[in-house]
Amino acid sequence: MYPLKFEHIYVNKVWGGRNLESFREDLPEGKIGESWEVACRKDVVSIISNGKYKGMSLDKLILKESDAILGTKISNKHFPLLIKFLDAQSKLSIQVHPNDFYALQNENDLGKTEAWVVLDAQENASMVLGVKDCSPDGFKEALEKGDLEPYLNRISVKKGDVYFIQSGLIHTMEGVLVAEIQQNSDTTYRVYDYNRGRELHIKKAMDVIDFSIHAKKASGLCIHKEGYEKTYYCYDHNFSLEKYKIEGSCIEKSDKERFYIFICIDGEGLIRYSNGIEEIRKGDTVFIPAGLGAYTLDGNFTLLKAYVPNIEKLEKEILGEIKYLSDC
């Protein structure tokens, strides 16, 4: 096994832009709103772009080398994660995602919990994360009148901000470039789309909006080590999100039970493993197979790490690291 890279999958969106050109040279024409970095769905599957398996789709490699790729605790029936970059230069629709139960009943798909990491932001960048001073009846009435803004919890955001977005949370964003880590679902219910003519899903959205939840900026738990620092941002049974800031080297080891995904958001460096070296730079996403073994992260760069955790094991790891706790 070796660290896998994938071809970029670009998606035009009415709210997209050209900011992915800050670290990409292959951007097609148009308003590019999304780059799907790691995808394994019936409709969209990532194609490996490096090494022995170059040109093979991820789903076929999983069939060929299931445990060595995914790990012994990750089912090969449904790939659990979807990794994207989003360039939201104008407003996304005001939207919500269902939980697993509702999505399985109504869409034959999983729900969608996600995390956003702001990679760049305009001066007036903002997000809506939940509602304020609003009951379901009040929200529906405001929606019918076309006057939602007073009831939206709109906040200013900046580069480096991290938000964990539970299913059921009403949300949108504008003026940001983000990395998105999410459940492997593409189910979105729009409640308002700024009169752009796309389909709305008001009945289903009202079914799933949780008016009691809000998202707060994740401050993270930061641990300093020799040559790097590691920040634990958020986790649940769907995924864990961590950040590595490498200024030297960091020795890691794959987990036979699960795969890891690294997203490089700044700088450049190397992944050294038993059979070779893989370069990594800003904008690259690298899949660490469960069977890779020991590897070293060398260079001056910043990585996001996403994976489906063993929660008990992760919490023990965090407790064991608290003695190193300090501000990053």
Rank of each mutant, 00 (worst) to 15 (best):
Y324H: 15
Q105A: 15
N310I: 09
S135P: 10
K77T: 15
G33Q: 01
Y295H: 08
F79R: 02
R258M: 08
K52E: 14
K256P: 07
P289Q: 04
H201M: 04
A306D: 01
M173I: 14
L319N: 14
Y235T: 01
Y233L: 05
Y53V: 02
P289G: 10
A125E: 03
D133T: 02
V162Y: 04
L81E: 01
Q122P: 02
D193Q: 10
V191E: 07
K243G: 06
D147I: 15
E25K: 15
S156V: 10
S49Y: 06
I94F: 13
S185F: 06
A125F: 02
N76Q: 14
A125W: 05
M56P: 00
S66K: 15
E279F: 04
M206P: 07
K13Q: 13
G146N: 10
Y273A: 00
A142V: 05
I277S: 02
R190P: 00
W36H: 06
T302A: 10
F301E: 08
D255A: 02
R41A: 01
F85Y: 15
I48G: 08
N99K: 12
D186W: 00
G291W: 13
Y273L: 01
C134F: 12
G51M: 04
S240R: 03
W116Y: 15
A103H: 02
E247F: 12
G146W: 11
T302P: 13
E312C: 08
P98N: 03
K256Q: 09
I9G: 03
G71H: 06
V286P: 05
G269A: 09
E278S: 14
R24A: 08
K316D: 15
V162T: 12
H8G: 06
S75M: 12
V157A: 08
S156T: 14
G320E: 08
I280R: 07
S326D: 13
N99S: 08
A306K: 00
R198T: 12
E252N: 10
P3S: 02
W36N: 09
C222T: 13
V157F: 02
Q166T: 11
E180F: 04
K140T: 15
F164N: 10
S254A: 06
D100M: 11
T231H: 06
C264P: 08
L169C: 11
A88M: 03
L27D: 02
D120Y: 03
G138V: 09
M56C: 04
M1S: 11
G111P: 11
D298W: 00
N76V: 13
S57F: 15
E317P: 01
G320S: 06
N195C: 03
K305P: 05
L81P: 14
D284N: 15
I311D: 07
I165P: 00
D100P: 01
E321G: 06
S249Q: 13
K225S: 14
P28F: 03
E144G: 09
I62A: 05
F101E: 15
E321A: 12
G146T: 09
V191D: 03
P3H: 09
D207P: 01
E149R: 14
